[in-house]
Amino acid sequence: MTISIIVLLFGAGVLTGMINAVAGGGTFLSFGALTLVGVPPVVANATSSITQFPGYITSTLAYWEDFKTFWRGAIALAVASVVGSLLGSWILLQLDNPQFRTLVPWLLLAATALFAAGPYLKPKPRPGQHASVGSAFGTAMQFVTAIYGGFFGAGMGVMMLASLGLSQAGDYHRLNALKNMLAMVIAAVAIIVFVAGGVVAWPQAVVMIPGVAIGGWSGVWIAKRVPQSVMRFSVIAVGLLLAVYYFVK
């Protein structure tokens, strides 16, 4: 890698971490930056999953106390996440780069639309409701979400928060804690499959991971000063531009 590519990937990692901390959707940038520097789409998707993983861990640890109230019910959702992510990541590995590349603009458009609709999909707080999580309906919905997350992670968090809001009880913070834990499980399984399949660009990942970590930490500072609407608009613009890029390329 040249110095300019290293700077580009590190900078994209920082912005990815910031956007994930403020509004979510940073996967658009990490995936886009990797493909722009010449990483094949399948490898870029797998590598992007690895760069996001440290952020999922820290987000889950931040909600550690919340898990004491529902961890038993979350086991069923975690199992569904493991199976769904295995299936989604396995499907990805069955595609070659040209095949996956034809799907990328459509996946980007769908994920961008989902991200744009995120504020309207967020579940309304339901104070006082603390029923156990892990119903059959919720487990089935989580299985479908995990397939998408294992195959193509962009927009997964918004999709999961929306599905959990429809199927689980509790306020927004409780659902967000559950979402962060399940996202970590989905990403961990996908990473194992991708590493075993040999589709990870490790030099690029090593450059981006510290940037994502720095961006995630500094994103808290950004969140207090930059309106989330500005960050969301930036993510949507990037998603649309990348979709157009892949349509015309």
Score class of each variant (00 low, 15 high):
T145I: 15
T145Y: 09
T145N: 13
A146F: 13
Y148A: 03
Y148G: 00
G149L: 09
F151G: 00
F152A: 02
F152T: 01
F152G: 01
G153M: 11
G153V: 07
G153E: 06
A154L: 08
A154F: 09
A154H: 04
A154Q: 05
A154N: 05
G155W: 01
G155L: 07
G157E: 05
V158M: 12
V158Q: 05
M159I: 07
M159W: 02
M159S: 08
M159Y: 05
M160F: 14
L161G: 01
A162T: 02
A162P: 01
S163N: 07
S163K: 01
L164Q: 06
L164G: 02
L164N: 03
G165K: 01
L166W: 15
S167F: 10
S167V: 08
S167P: 08
A169H: 11
G170A: 11
D171Q: 14
D171H: 12
D171E: 15
H173F: 13
H173K: 13
R174H: 12
L175K: 02
N176M: 08
N176A: 11
A177N: 03
L178H: 02
L178V: 07
N180A: 15
M181H: 07
M181C: 13
M181L: 15
M181I: 10
M181G: 13
L182S: 02
L182W: 08
A183M: 13
M184Q: 03
M184T: 05
M184S: 04
V185G: 01
A187G: 08
A188L: 14
A188P: 00
V189I: 14
I191V: 14
F194Y: 14
F194P: 00
V195L: 14
V195S: 10
A196D: 06
G197L: 09
G198H: 10
G198C: 12
G198W: 11
V199E: 13
V200G: 06
V200C: 10
A201N: 12
A201G: 03
A201M: 12
A201E: 13
A201W: 08
A201I: 04
A201Q: 10
W202G: 06
P203I: 13
Q204W: 10
Q204K: 06
A205R: 01
A205I: 04
V207I: 15
I209Q: 07
I209M: 15
P210C: 12
